[in-house]
Amino acid sequence: MALEHHRVVITAAGRDFGRTLALQFASRGAEVHLSARTLEAAERVREEIIAQGHDADRVHAFACDLTDPASVREFVAAVAARTGHIDVLVNNGARYQHGADLLSASDEDVVDTLASAATGTVLVTKAFLPLLLESAKPDIVTMVSGCGETGHHRSDAHSAYYAAKSAQAGFTEILSRRLRDQGVRVISLYPPDFDNHDPLSDSWAGAPRTAKDPLTAQSVADCIFFAIGQPRDCFIKSFYFEQV
């Protein structure tokens, strides 16, 4: 799918799946605006994309601490200074907290986990909505996680992470209903833990994937590109995955 005419914002793009998506969107020709908690992390991915032959003027790096409302505002203002609209917002940022024992996380860990995924997603979406509404093809994509599914219990993530992801799920559910009349598609993904191979490595293409293999980042990314590539009358609200 070619995305030469798309302007895309990706949060937490400094590593892991955010980096994967940044590379994938850029490889399809999109102009990408990347944020990470530190500018250095975002710049590293920007340089990586440019090294692949992409136009430096279409790859932008920003710092954004999703737990800090002022940082979110500064990030959005910096993007708005470069463009009058964005077409895709990818809410990828969320701090993961491990530990089935509720007492295993400090109060600070709990607050940071909830703030990055729940509060951060709401603030980023709210702040970018005016730029999205200027687009003829606005999409909001949120990486929720299987931990946001009602009744899910297969992850060793901390209860605070479950709480944060459940908040994201509730937010995107109501947002999908409320923004549809304005032409904004709200797309949520609920994957279990998946294998995030380096998209630049030979293993990215790899052998054909089978039902016995773990879910890969490529499969998750393919869902995103499929959804945003549909005609505007097609609203794919959610992707749910079988929990192995």
Rank of each mutant, 00 (worst) to 15 (best):
D202G: 10
S203L: 13
L39I: 14
A207Y: 07
C64M: 13
R58D: 03
G14Q: 07
L215E: 00
A13P: 02
T216H: 02
T38Y: 04
L114H: 01
D195Y: 08
G151H: 04
D198W: 02
L114Q: 09
L189E: 01
R7E: 11
A42D: 07
F62M: 06
K165D: 05
H5P: 10
A100C: 12
C223W: 09
R58V: 04
R15V: 01
A136Q: 09
I228W: 04
L21Q: 00
Y161S: 03
M1Y: 14
D112Y: 13
Y96C: 09
L179W: 05
N91L: 02
L129K: 09
A41S: 15
H153E: 10
I86D: 03
Q218D: 10
R82A: 10
V59F: 06
Q230K: 12
N92E: 02
K237N: 12
T20V: 09
L175S: 13
H152Q: 05
R178G: 12
K126M: 14
A217E: 02
Y162V: 04
A61Q: 08
D139C: 08
R95N: 11
T121M: 12
A70G: 14
G229V: 05
K137Y: 14
V220Y: 04
V124H: 07
A118D: 15
A118G: 11
F235D: 10
L132W: 01
N91T: 01
G29K: 05
F128N: 10
E43A: 14
A117P: 12
S203D: 14
D112N: 13
I86S: 00
E48A: 07
A169M: 00
F194L: 00
V111N: 08
D112W: 11
Q230T: 13
V122W: 15
Y162S: 01
V72F: 08
F171L: 13
H153C: 07
A160S: 15
H152L: 04
E74H: 13
T216A: 04
S176R: 14
D107S: 13
L114D: 05
T216F: 01
P192R: 07
A169I: 05
H158C: 03
L175A: 14
R46S: 06
G170L: 06
G148R: 01
Q168F: 03
E40N: 10
H197N: 11
H54F: 10
S203G: 07
V76K: 06
D139M: 00
Y240R: 10
T11K: 02
D57H: 12
H60Y: 05
L131V: 09
A115M: 15
H98N: 12
L89E: 03
R15W: 06
R7I: 06
A80V: 01
G14D: 07
Y162T: 06
A22M: 02
A221E: 02
L21Y: 04
E242Q: 13
T119F: 15
N92P: 06
I49L: 07
P69Q: 08
A157C: 12
R82V: 05
D68K: 05
R185T: 03
D213S: 11
T67G: 15
I140E: 01
D55Y: 02
C64W: 07
D233W: 12
N196C: 09
T142I: 05
S238D: 14
A205R: 12
A56C: 06
C147N: 07
I187F: 07
E47W: 09
P191A: 01
A117K: 15
F239V: 08
T121G: 15
